[in-house]
């Protein structure tokens, strides 16, 4: 697969920020009262994510290592301010519904996480595509959660009511409903073994490792530590060879 397209596939399916890496839970739980709110929040985050990844990747050789987090925050905060002002100017309704959660995009773990884990180590264009993939994955997840909550809690699809008011289970548009839906969707995703970084069987993992494929985090830290020891041992061997 083309390495740019691979980034997008990775962000949407394999390392979906919400269902697989479980990042950015605050906006996921708080803003998904309806499908359109989730979609809006997802797109706002995507816009910030794409440009923050691009900028941080472009600046990665200039930013000193010791102050990289404050530097990232400054870049992200500026982008969020731009997005916030644009939303206030052009999509007033959404801006009012999302409220405090728009400025809170600054502290969204996905954005910081991708800056630190990806953009700081890869070329600007690749980082931008990573941002697009992650952003779309986030948007998709939020829209699906919002869709389920809206359908069950207020009986409507994208604002069109299809279930009479007597049958609305209104707890689903309140805070507990967010937890129910997120848990159920994550459980389903795990149950049906949707392709993801964490869902690979042990044998398959080993096979893929042998084939030389780079694997994402599988949530098994111990495994990674073992691997780290291996790498360290190999590095030490190499260093000795060089000395000789």
């Amino acid at each position: 697969m083309n390495k740019y397209l691979e980034r997008i596939y990775n962000g949407i399916i394999k390392e979906n920020p919400t269902f697989v890496i479980m990042l950015g839970m605050c906006p996921t739980l708080a803003t998904t009262t309806s499908a359109i709110n989730g979609f809006g929040m997802g797109l706002a985050t995507t816009a910030v994510l794409v440009f923050s990844n691009l900028l941080i990747s472009a600046l990665r050789k200039i930013i000193p290592d010791k102050v990289r987090i404050p530097a990232y925050i400054v870049v992200i905060a500026s982008l969020v301010t731009i997005v916030q002002l644009l939303m206030q100017a052009y999509v007033q309704g959404l801006y009012n519904t999302l409220g405090i959660y728009i400025p809170l995009i600054v502290v969204n773990c996905i954005i910081m996480g991708r800056a630190e884990a990806y953009a700081a180590k890869h070329s600007p264009l690749l980082s931008m595509f990573d941002g697009i993939g992650m952003g779309l994955g986030f948007t998709l997840a939020l829209t699906v959660i919002g869709f389920c909550r809206e359908l069950i809690g207020s009986g409507s699809v994208f604002g069109y009511e299809i279930i009479p008011a007597d049958f609305h289970i209104s707890i689903f548009v309140m805070a507990p409903g967010a937890f129910f839906v997120l848990a159920a969707l994550t459980a389903l995703q795990n149950r049906f073994k949707a392709p993801s970084a964490t869902n690979v069987s042990k044998e398959e993992r080993e096979a893929r490792k042998r084939a030389g494929e780079k694997l994402g985090c599988d949530g098994n830290c111990q495994n990674c530590m073992l691997h780290a020891e291996e790498i360290a041992a190999q590095a030490a061997k190499k260093a000795e060879e060089v000395k000789r």
């Binding site: 289970i169 209104s170 707890i171």
Partner: peptide, 10 residues
Amino acid sequence: CFLMISFAKP
């Protein structure tokens, strides 16, 4: 409690 929150009126 789930029902109380969801269907307060009935």
